[in-house]
Simulated assay, not measured.
Amino acid sequence: MQRTVNFFREVGREMKKVSWPKRKELTNYTITVLATVIFFSVFFALVDMGISELIRLILE
């Protein structure tokens, strides 16, 4: 039990050392991640549609 208590005390100490991003940084990072995910989703959807059409043309 003492090891568990010590573990959580250490976790608390380490969490105080963490450099958390400011609100503006967090907003910028979130927008960057969302834009990247949307871009790659659209990109791979278009590539998938193109490959599907190519396969349909070959098989017909």
Score class of each variant (00 low, 15 high):
L46P: 01
V42Q: 06
T30V: 09
F7M: 06
F39D: 01
A35T: 08
W20C: 04
F43Q: 00
K22S: 12
I55N: 08
R13S: 08
T4E: 14
E14L: 11
I55A: 08
N6K: 14
R13H: 11
L34R: 04
S19Y: 12
F7I: 07
L26M: 02
S52P: 00
L46K: 13
F44P: 01
N28H: 09
T32A: 10
R23K: 15
V33C: 06
N6M: 10
P21E: 01
L57G: 08
W20K: 14
F39M: 03
I55F: 12
F8L: 12
M1I: 06
M49E: 14
I55S: 00
V42S: 04
L46M: 09
T36V: 02
V11S: 01
Y29M: 14
V11D: 05
K17C: 00
T32E: 09
V33L: 13
A35C: 13
W20S: 06
F40I: 01
P21K: 03
L46E: 06
F40T: 04
L59E: 15
N6S: 10
K22G: 05
L54D: 10
M1P: 12
V42D: 01
Y29I: 10
T4N: 14
L26Q: 06
L46R: 14
V47H: 07
V47L: 12
E60N: 15
F7H: 13
A45V: 06
V11M: 06
V33M: 08
E60A: 15
R3W: 11
K24C: 04
E14K: 15
T30H: 08
A45C: 05
G12F: 09
T30I: 00
A45Y: 08
V18I: 13
E14Y: 03
S41K: 08
R13A: 01
L34K: 04
S41R: 05
L46C: 06
V5Q: 07
F40A: 06
A45P: 01
E53Y: 15
M15T: 08
F40M: 03
F8S: 02
Y29A: 10
I58A: 13
V47S: 10
S52L: 11
L57W: 15
S41M: 07
S52I: 09
S41Y: 11
M1D: 10
T30R: 12
T32S: 11
K16M: 06
V42A: 13
V47W: 04
R3T: 07
L54I: 10
M1K: 14
M49C: 07
I58C: 07
T30P: 03
F40C: 01
P21N: 03
M1Y: 09
R13N: 06
Y29V: 03
S52M: 11
T32V: 05
L26P: 00
G50M: 03
T36N: 12
I38G: 00
W20Q: 09
R13Q: 08
M1A: 12
T30D: 06
E25M: 08
E60S: 15
L46H: 05
A45M: 05
K16L: 11
G12C: 02
F7P: 02
G12M: 05
S41L: 10
N28T: 09
E25R: 02
I31K: 15
M1T: 13
